[in-house]
Design a protein around this nucleic acid. Structure first.
Lengths: 192, 192
DNA sequence: TTCAAAACCCTAACCGTTAGTGTTACAGTC
DNA sequence: GACTGTAACACTAACGGTTAGGGTTTTGAA
């Protein structure tokens, strides 16, 4: 109940930031597989255990900037104007997210991820959790049970749209193309 | 070019089988996390290095029986009667696969997988590779480039159908429901 | 018979991750 | 300002999956 004020919070955030920055820097410099956790910890001047108290796994160091992905999707559902249809709102959000991750300044990190199976797997598994969260948000918004197959399906499809577009030659066009398909799929479900 | 005849192949297969059987037995008995690779190797009476020359990772021991999943999907595309439409063929195949994995005798292995995050993640990542293979097969069948977004999309959707149905209360109904959506999505793509 | 390769074994390590056990620095209280 | 609980951090040592290095046996073929 007592929320810590000021310095302690800032120091913690600074430590976390320093670890993430150091890690990304080393990874980009020497490659993900050629930098060990012990290297990162040493360079960031923290103990290995401290590193793991801030991040659940080595891979998480790379996706530090990726916060807000899940939150953004949920908000696209919950915060949309009354009467605004679901799918276009999600389409717009996915457009934004895809632009963000295919931006030129994100290219080094992207190629880092693509070049490491461990990172690709980790990302995929993150996205699946996001799909579950999104499905729950959609179900809540529509007032149907969380286990609704249609909600879970469309949530997965939306995450697929993101993944496919990030790998496509023309990401923006890919989003539109996949979303035309999603729109049709949603129309064919009982909940449309 | 020279294919080894007989005994050597059989012995290798037998070793592989023995490792997989021993592993599954131990996992079901004591739980996935409470059985180490060294336990499995000792019980199967092989060296740890031998085990890893047969299986790429601990998780793979659990999915040994799962061979044919990918192959079945691809064959559903390539071996269908001339003129038979794509989606219903895939629907039928997914129905079969879902029945197989929700069958009562598969329940212990299923709950083993569900209860272990590592196994769930490994399965998810396997399925994604299957989606890529399926996408390539569909693209080849339709004579379009492998990078076709519509093909890659529908392949992912089909894999989603499998995953969603396996977790659904009524797997058969879930397959049908998701495939109604996929059918609509496919119809909305340029390739239909 | 001889030979190369395949399959296997053993040892020792690497690396991500965690448990156990302190130590320090801060926040709220007196 | 001293006191105290606790959050953040450190250190050591280990665990468990995985791999490298290097050797031995089995097998198929010349």
């Amino acid at each position: 109940m007592i929320e810590p004020s000021g310095r302690r919070e800032r120091k913690k955030a600074a430590t976390r930031q320093k670890i993430a920055d150091t890690a990304l820097h080393l990874f980009l410099e020497r490659g993900y597989d050629d930098v060990g956790i012990r290297d990162v910890a040493a360079e960031a001047d923290v103990a290995v255990t401290t590193l793991f108290s801030h991040f659940p796994a080595k891979e998480a160091l790379v996706f530090e900037r990726d916060q807000g992905f899940e939150h953004g999707l949920v908000r696209a559902v919950t915060d949309r104007a009354p009467g605004e249809p679901l799918i276009p709102a999600l389409r717009q959000e996915i457009h934004a997210l895809v632009r963000h991750c295919t931006a030129p300044e994100a290219a080094p990190v992207r190629s880092l991820i693509v070049s490491s199976p461990a990172l690709r797997e980790y990302e995929e598994s993150m996205r699946m959790r996001h799909a579950d969260t999104l499905a729950a948000a959609i179900a809540a918004d529509l007032g149907v049970p969380e286990t609704s197959t249609a909600c879970r399906t469309v949530a997965r499809f939306v995450i697929d749209a993101y993944a496919l577009a990030c790998e496509a030659a023309e990401p923006g066009d890919a989003v539109d193309e996949v979303f035309r398909m999603i729109e049709a799929a949603w129309g064919a479900s009982r909940l449309a």
